[in-house]
Design a binder for these strands. Structure first.
Lengths: 168, 168
DNA sequence: TAAGATTGACTCTTCAATCTTC
DNA sequence: GAAGATTGAAGAGTCAATCTTA
């Protein structure tokens, strides 16, 4: 997305405004929240654009990779939502699309009549590998050094843990 | 959102899987991208929940604050989109809702017949102040120290600049 | 009763097409 | 023709309600 860049950083400018208006104490946190929002928008836009030709989105790609890394190439939908930290409705939606694309099959759970498994098809396996090549290029293009990535990850991990996302 | 936390970090687990499957070189970047996605989800969920009683969302709140910080309390919709880095359609949508809520008025641009201004109403000014109290609490609850926030901001700024978001 | 999954209503986002005015 | 704004369609997310099975 070659949207023309601004001649200044709008988030830095917003932080300045917060300070000017007497909220110096929360200005840095505000800037961080806004930066996270914007970074997410950038990442998602890039990756979704890359994956579009494969009939995938980042959300569906994550689901595909989770299945690929699973022992049997299949998982109950509930387990998927738990791992991906999304609502059941989102899992249903993503699996619907993946099934339409022929990447996944719904299979009844062998022992629990309430549950459904999403199972990778051979096409799903192939496409996951193909998509990973594309996505890896996008990851590499982030432009941070190994150590910076580690610091960034650790800080965000602290944020997530603080929000009760998992037991640290 | 008191969703029960997992007993492990699903993103750290995903990174481990990437390493196991031979993508050690991109695993840290993958973990960062996923962490940003998740942090955004957390922030947005919290803030939107806080603002819901005021009939605001984070997107609308940002627009309100941009107007509040502007010289005249009004800006052309195009300028708003540029500053907030969202599409024109998103601005139209947000202004529609804010207008429904009585926080903003559409006013014809005095010199350019094509353009429209969004102008704060007195209620909009009051509500913006009220919302800021709530949002500031959420910001303060991030749980990072001043210096950590600075480091986080700088790293994300580098990511944004690398994506061509603005001229560094 | 509770768990697993689905559905429908709603919000926010993007994109492409359109309309008016410069 | 190009800029500013709006519209409609499509995707993904939330929540609340529902249906089936344990």
């Amino acid at each position: 997305v070659p949207r023309r860049g601004l001649s200044f950083d709008p988030i830095a400018e917003a932080e300045r405004q917060w300070r000017v208006h007497g909220w110096e104490d929360v200005a840095p946190a505000m800037a961080v929240v806004t930066s996270v929002m914007r970074a997410q928008q950038i990442f998602l836009g890039r990756i979704d654009a890359l994956l579009r030709p494969l009939n995938l989105t980042f959300a569906r790609y994550e689901l595909l990779m989770l299945l690929l890394f699973s022992r049997r190439g299949s998982l109950p939908l509930g387990k998927i939502g738990e791992r991906l930290q999304v609502q059941p409705a989102s899992v249903t939606n993503a699996v619907d699309r993946l099934e339409d694309g022929g990447f996944v099959r719904r299979v009844p759970h062998p022992t629990d009549g309430r549950a459904t498994l999403a199972e990778l098809t051979p096409a799903g396996r192939r496409t996951a590998a193909q998509a990973t090549k594309l996505v890896n290029d996008a990851f590499a293009a982030i432009g941070l050094q190994e150590q910076e990535l580690t610091v960034l990850f650790d800080l965000l991990r602290k944020v997530r843990a603080g929000a009760g996302d998992f037991q640290p």
